[in-house]
Each structure stands twice: as C-alpha cells, then as structure tokens.
Amino acid sequence: MLISSSYSLISTFNSWLSSGNILLNILALIAYGIFISIILSVYDYLFGWAERKIIAKVQLRHGPTYVGKFGILQNLADVIKLLAKEHIVPDTADKFLYAIGLPAMMAISVLLVLVLPFSPYLQATNLALGLLFVLVLLSFMPLFIFVSAYSTGNKFADISAQRSVLMMLSYELPMLIVLASVALLSKSFNIAGIISAQSTGWFVWLMPIGFIVFFVAMLAELERPPFDFLEADSELIAGWLTDYSAPYYALSLFLDYTRMLFGSLIMAILFFGGWSGPFLPPIIWLLIKAVIISLFIIIIRTTLVRMRIDRMLKFGWVWMLPLSLVNLIITYMVFIH
C-alpha cells in the first residue's frame, strides 16, 4: 500500500515537472528537496549511531547504551550538546573563510547527492553529462578543505591542508581514469544511462581492477581510514577541524556522513547496477547496496592502521595509476574493440 501510494505520489510529481507550469515545477522541486533531506538526515543519523555501535562491537565494547533503546538517541544528545556549546572562533582565523568553509563543503556534498538519481523516476534532474558534473564537484572538495584549514590559522590545520593537496594528487587521476573507463563501457556520461548499461552485467564483474582502484580512491576522497591523514587524530589532533568548535563541529560530523552516503551511492551506481534488482522498488535496491558499501567502509575503519602520507602518494602513482590505465586498456580491448 505504502509502495503503491508513494508510486502515485512520485508519478504526480513527475507529471508536475513535465507539465511546464513553473509553479508546479517549483513545488515538485521542493518536494524532492524534502525527500532528499529526509534521506540525508536519516542516513547521517543512523550511520552516526551505527558506526559507533559497530566499532564498539569489534572492539569488545558496548558502545552507546544509555540514551534511548540501544543508545540510538545518543547522537541526538551529542548534537544538542554541541549546538548548546559556545562557538569559539580563534583570533588567528580569517573570519570570512572560517565562516563559509564548512557550509560550502556541506552544500557541495548535498549537491553531489542531489544529482544522483534514486530511481528511474526519482531524480532532481537528468543531466546528460552527470558523471562529469559529479567529477567537477568532487574536485572542489579538497579546495574547500584547504580553504577551511588555512582559515583557522592553526598549524596542525596547515599541515592538514598541505596533505589534502598531496592526497588530491595521488588519488584524483586514477579515479578520473576509472570513471573514463566506466563512461567508455556504458557509452554514456548520463548516470541513468550508466545504470541501464549494467542491465546485462554489473561493471564490478566486467572491470574488477577498476572497482578496486575506485574504491581505494573513494576511501581517500572520503578521508576514511586508512587514508584519514587529514583528520589524523593521533598526529594532527583533528587536522583541519582542530579549531572548529561546537556547531561547526556538529556540521563537520554531518558532512562526514553525507560524503559517505555520496561515496556509497556512487559506487553502487557505477559498479553495482544502481537501482536494478528484482521484486523490491528501485530506490530500496539502491539504498540496500549503498548501506552495504557503507558498512564495509566502517569495518575497514576498525581494522586498518593509518598509512603515511608520502606512502599514499607513492601508492597512488606506482599502483593505482598504472592499474587504472590497465583497466582502461582492458576495457577498450575486450569490450569495445
């Protein structure tokens, strides 16, 4: 009943979008905005909690237990606490950049999620060059990390900023080449087109090397262990977040999980057939795939030691780049030629 009613809702919105009436268009976009906010907040909240719980279980602890059933309200309590705390802007900070850095990053990551389609009918816009748009937005992220780090005037943040540039050098190019081979294989830059190209077989089977390279690059992009150099808590205290207090810190936590949602979604879309799957509605399939990938990312976090930044650079250029090229060549020779 729920599914059928939501289907009718979606089709109504779609008819509004295609009606050409500006008012109805805006209404449909607002409705989609609400839908995305719900997905984002539920995912961010649940994974904020689940990550604590999973890590606790791996470490033979209990994790949050007191606030709510299974401690599910613990993160809410934490966010309330953070919002209630005094917001300290350091004297050395560049006030304007300090204020816009994190919100801009949050905006970019929400935009990233926004351009991804959740089902054939549930998408904000169907960009012909959606993949390129995603890439452009992604390369903005290190820039804003750089800006927010330098804006605090903290030396640990300075190191973090330098590292963010180094990291971008190491993973961006391999990731780009893998995306190129995805586009080559699906003969489309359109994200819906990429998904429909996978109806015969998921790309993860067709180019496993490419997937591994992309996964590693995505871990680096999301600043997840073992590539969490930027926030390296045992070295740089909190890296570029060292001087962000109270509400900004809460925002940074949301940012973290929003980026993780984007990373999981894009991996599910590019390599695991996106929304395709039997019986269940497309959006459920997409979310299931994304959640499994997210859980995998969290499990990696519990086990691996942090790499060293110079090794990461070496790893990127000696292993990831050649592998991504090999992947591109194989894709071309086997599937296209």
Binding site: I55, V58, Q59, L60, R61, P225, P226, D228, A232, D233, S234, E235, R301, T302, T303, L304, V305, R306
Partner: peptide, 17 residues
Amino acid sequence: LCNDIGQLFTAFMWSFK
C-alpha cells in the same frame, strides 16, 4: 603503539582486555 600509528582503538581495546 597501534593507537599512535592511527588505528581506531581496536588493538588497544583488545590488548587492554
């Protein structure tokens, strides 16, 4: 040692247990 080289407390918790 594991904590200092950036592992998220897993080996730490195990060894402390």
